[in-house]
Simulated scan of single mutants.
Amino acid sequence: MRFTQGSQGAGQSREQERDTGKMSMRKKSSVVPPKIGDRRSNHLAPTNVVRQSANSRISSVSTVSFMDEPHEPMRGPPVRLEPTFQLKPNKKFPVVQVKNILKDVLESYLSEEKYEPELCRQMTKTISEVVKARVKDLQVKRYKVIVLIHIGQLKDQGMRMGSRCLWDPENDTFSSYEYKNNSLFAIGSVYGVYYE
């Protein structure tokens, strides 16, 4: 089949018109996908869409939050911080003052009490809270305060109490006091454990 120059030129011009029409459509409105390797190209999250028009370069941008996605670790040398702990206390635990607090509280609460199991159960809780509050008022920093109060009926029996603790003998200490009246006995112990 032979084409004449006129028909061949007409065929080319129609193809050129179609191509130029497609090009002009692309220039008016197009969608630019995100780059490969961009964090926004995650198939689970919607991607950013940028529309370009003939008059303005970017007409709208939709954003997506990536707060829940894992992020890259920080690059560079790690930040070094100075240690803020103390190895020794500024002020030692006041054993004598704590013993005076125990004596004062036990004598004031139990001087006229008779042994009753239910009442003594509540008294141990109350006395331990009062002693703990008064020891904390001494404001000895960095010491954990542990208060144990034992109240029992006084009859002709023998009793021994002991305790074992794992602690630093230079900084940790305790104070205790025994109280007796006609019907009961009470033993109060306060442990001061230094917390680094």
Rank of each mutant, 00 (worst) to 15 (best):
Y194E: 03
F185D: 01
S176W: 10
K114R: 04
C120W: 00
E17V: 15
L184P: 04
K180M: 02
E69T: 03
V98T: 01
Q5W: 09
L87K: 11
N55W: 08
L184Q: 00
R75Y: 07
D172N: 09
N55R: 15
N181V: 00
R51C: 11
S108T: 01
L138A: 02
C120L: 04
S53P: 13
Q86N: 14
V79G: 04
G21K: 15
K141L: 05
S175R: 06
D156Q: 13
V193I: 05
V145I: 05
S29W: 08
P46V: 03
M159W: 08
A45N: 06
M67D: 15
G6P: 12
T4I: 04
R80E: 15
C165L: 06
S53F: 10
L166A: 07
A54C: 08
L184E: 06
D168S: 05
E112W: 12
G188A: 01
T173C: 01
E129Y: 13
N42I: 11
Y109A: 04
M123C: 10
D104Y: 07
S65Y: 00
E116L: 11
K28E: 11
K27M: 05
P78C: 06
T20F: 10
K103D: 08
E82C: 10
G6H: 12
Q97H: 02
E170L: 07
G162T: 02
S24D: 11
V145S: 04
S30H: 04
P77L: 15
W167V: 03
G188E: 03
N48K: 04
L166K: 15
V49M: 14
E17M: 08
S24M: 10
M161Q: 14
Y195W: 12
K99P: 00
P83N: 13
G11Y: 11
G192S: 02
E129A: 08
M67A: 15
S24N: 12
D172W: 10
E196P: 13
T124Q: 03
S108N: 03
K35V: 03
I36V: 09
V49H: 12
S65N: 13
E178F: 04
R39D: 12
I151Q: 11
V140R: 01
Q97C: 05
P83G: 15
R75F: 05
V193P: 00
P33I: 00
Y143Q: 00
P46T: 00
K88I: 11
